[in-house]
């Protein structure tokens, strides 16, 4: 079976949370982003979120907005996303593509699912597609044995937690706080409350994202979640780097710190 299920079963059997790392394709350029994703895997990231840069990323804070801007101005195309997926899979980690919905819609939902499966991808995370609107995607994912990760939020009602988790395969993405992506100094109680509420509804693993940036925070979240998702903090390693080598070194260092964090959490 494709997907992230095997990795999450393995991390669970090791008594730890999985580390999920996000980077957008095309930042600082296509090859640079692929190198960074591979470096992340080598340094201990279990699952990679391969981000599709999009002109209107309304769930993202300034760090990822900037990266998407650079990627698009640099001419990044959807075909580059499939290349990144292939590279991550070859490096030994499942690749989940994180994308706003319109690029998939324009490409063709079935065609996207086919090409993602062909590239060795694990599935999709869809921040602006709720299962209510996702019938076409869910059918295409079924056909291609792909994961579909939908989000739950602190504002989700019990009914929506139930229906959303029912539609998920792979894991459930718990958005820890109300807000957009970006590192935060504290990960509030809301995350743990949400995970507890979500567990009442599903046996599917639950990974927590939005705001985690340090090994210590990863450890806190790992205490109650099946996986810890880190995005902006990793992107910032590349944003702040003076050179390509410095960027990759920073990615390796943070990935290792986070990987230690998810192992120290329990």
């Amino acid at each position: 079976m494709n997907g992230v299920g095997a990795v999450l079963a393995k991390t669970k059997s090791e008594g730890r949370a999985a580390l999920v790392g996000y980077l957008p394709v095309g930042f600082p350029d296509v090859q640079g982003s692929i190198d960074a994703m591979v470096a992340m895997v080598q340094a201990g990231v279990d699952i990679v979120e391969v981000g599709v840069p999009y002109t209107d990323p309304l769930m993202d804070g300034p760090v990822i907005q900037h990266a998407a801007d650079v990627a698009l101005k640099g001419g990044t195309r959807l075909k580059d996303v499939f290349a990144a997926v292939r590279a991550v899979a070859d490096a030994g980690a499942p690749a989940l593509v994180m994308t706003y919905w319109n690029p998939v819609l324009r490409y063709g939902v079935d065609r996207f699912a086919d090409d993602l499966a062909k590239a060795g991808g694990a599935g999709l995370i869809t921040p602006d597609l709720i299962p209510d609107e996702g019938a076409e995607w869910i059918a295409a994912a079924e056909r291609n044995d792909l994961d579909r990760v939908f989000l739950v939020a602190p504002s989700s009602t019990p009914e929506r937690l139930r229906s959303t988790t029912l539609a998920c395969r792979g894991f459930v993405y718990a958005a820890s706080t109300m807000g957009v992506t970006g590192a935060r100094t504290t990960v509030g109680d809301a995350a743990e409350v949400l995970v507890t509420r979500t567990r009442l509804m599903t046996d599917t693993p639950i990974c927590v994202g939005l705001g985690v940036s340090t090994g210590a925070q990863a450890g806190q979240v790992a205490a109650f979640a099946d996986g810890v998702i880190v995005g902006s903090a990793l992107v910032r390693c590349l944003t702040d780097a003076a050179s390509r080598e410095d960027g990759l070194a920073a990615i390796r260092k943070l990935s290792a710190e986070l990987a230690a964090g998810v192992r120290a959490g329990r």
């Binding site: 309304l58 602006d128 209510d132 989000l151």
Partner: peptide, 14 residues
């Protein structure tokens, strides 16, 4: 039409 939004907004839309 429809509702292509983050889950976090669905409760407010309802």
């Amino acid at each position: 039409g429809g509702r292509y939004v983050p889950e976090a907004l669905v409760a407010a839309l309802e």
